[in-house]
Design a protein around this nucleic acid. Structure first.
Lengths: 149, 149
DNA sequence: CTGAATTTAATTGCACACAATTAAACATTG
DNA sequence: CAATGTTTAATTGTGTGCAATTAAATTCAG
């Protein structure tokens, strides 16, 4: 552990010492844990995040979605077009400001909510955490997120 | 906060209630924070992770890299080919088992270490956390990661 | 009111991620 | 040792992510 030839930069450069790797890996593995539930609804994980917002708001501009999800139009535009193809939502220009595109939840998208509403509970099981651990981690990640933005 | 029409499934279905979103977003934002440092070395973030392992081990099979990074050959093969093109590493079949491909750190890759070794310290600044907060979060993420694998 | 600056999406190009399939090398078993 | 099964990478196809550029609409300054 205390190799005299290893200085502090060496130790910090190991994969094991990183915060970034468990964050990166846990994010991907959690997405993978959602997979079976989302696949049953023909949804991808980022599409599910879009739905979480539309189920709350019904109507949002691309800009608003991007601000809330921290994604830009290069990611959102093709993703939303795929969701439009499945008739889950509509995309139309705002008549009052033609620069904006309004994303609106459509009937088929609203109907998906009923099938999705138990996903969070089911995922809790996969994480095997107490409610306290869950909340503590969520708070710390939100704090980190704020500092990184 | 306590809308009588909102049941527990409704509350859990909001983006704000999720653990997955801050995990997903913080992971991407942290990768973005690495960007300027990695770009200076012509590196992407997953390539940097491969280097962290090769600087420790010098030689690893694709399978070993995949196990440590939780990535499969569909991701690693093209990524490693790009790194080979830059002469950072070599890819050759193991003579004792032709199924395995051995990834070996080359001179140019070894030289990158000197330029990269201060990246972890520089990133610590961006996260604005105490060493204790850093360690606590790292431990919790590793625990979650274990449960998800 | 007009030219310049700003805002907003879309587009382009590149690099992951990952499921699913393929193919080659090796191991096992009868 | 031959047939079968397993392991390991590579390949294919789809869907993000994101930097950089483009283009249209709006706002702002003079």
């Amino acid at each position: 552990m205390n190799d005299p030839h290893e200085n502090s930069s060496d130790a910090l450069l190991k994969l094991e010492s990183q915060l970034c790797f468990p964050l990166y890996a846990a994010s991907r593995m959690l997405t993978k844990a959602y997979q079976p539930y989302l696949q049953a609804l023909d949804l991808t994980y980022p599409q599910y995040l879009v739905f979480l917002l539309l189920w709350e708001h019904e109507e949002l501009t691309v800009k608003e979605l991007g601000e809330k999800l921290l994604l830009d139009s290069g990611t959102l535009t093709p993703l939303l077009k795929r969701m439009e193809q499945k008739q889950w939502l509509s995309r139309r220009r705002d008549p009052r400001d033609e620069r904006s595109v309004i994303i609106r939840l459509e009937v088929a998208g609203r109907a998906l909510r009923e099938q999705a509403c138990h996903i969070p509970e089911q995922l809790l099981g996969h994480m095997g955490m107490t409610k306290e651990e869950f909340e503590a981690l969520r708070t710390q990640l939100n704090t980190l997120l704020t500092k990184l933005c």
